[in-house]
Amino acid sequence: MTYAYLFKYIIIGDTGVGKSCLLLQFTDKRFQPVHDLTIGVEFGARMVNIDGKQIKLQIWDTAGQESFRSITRSYYRGAAGALLVYDITRRETFNHLTSWLEDARQHSSSNMVIMLIGNKSDLESRRDVKREEGEAFAREHGLIFMETSAKTACNVEEAFINTAKEIYRKIQQGLFDVHNEANGIKIGPQQSISTSLGPSASQQNCRDLGSDAGCC
């Protein structure tokens, strides 16, 4: 399928916060309650529509365990976007954000767009990290922020698409050199974009993505 741009994403965060589940929900629209531990890197891909342009998201889902940190570090290189995920029911996953962020900033291109995600918003009764804390952390470090639920699919679509919008905005502002693949962006094979039959993502995109209040 043709696309105007390809964006590379990386999903990072502690083990068990739901990185693989977010990816599965986004690419396959399903939730798998018991997910094997990711022990290396896994990939997903989906087409989305931003401003009438087909954009292919290529998503790298990484192992969260500390022992794989040295392996996953090399995967930041060439990523245009990162989803930094914590679990709102486990405070330690929130406490580790600084260390993840340091890794990300150190090993990625400076323009990488980082989306902070507080996952498992369906487990409100077990909440351990307030939404305001997530918002404050994001503000302080210049990240976009959303709470999501990979289980109910709430905001999952939005998290991926809003990140893409931000990257696309940076491209239009000339902040990204789209000809340098080390920035995680590739120009699609020649294409006229307008004619494509929009996949489901394009309709989703018509919704107002500005508010993430909706279901969470």
């Binding site: 891909a45 090399s74 995967y75 930041y76 290189r77 990523a79």
Partner: peptide, 17 residues
């Protein structure tokens, strides 16, 4: 096919297992 495409990244060089 998508995964094969992702794996062919000469910059980050993902280790496939």
């Amino acid at each position: 096919q998508d995964e094969v495409e992702c794996s062919a990244d000469h910059i980050a060089r993902p280790i496939l297992i």
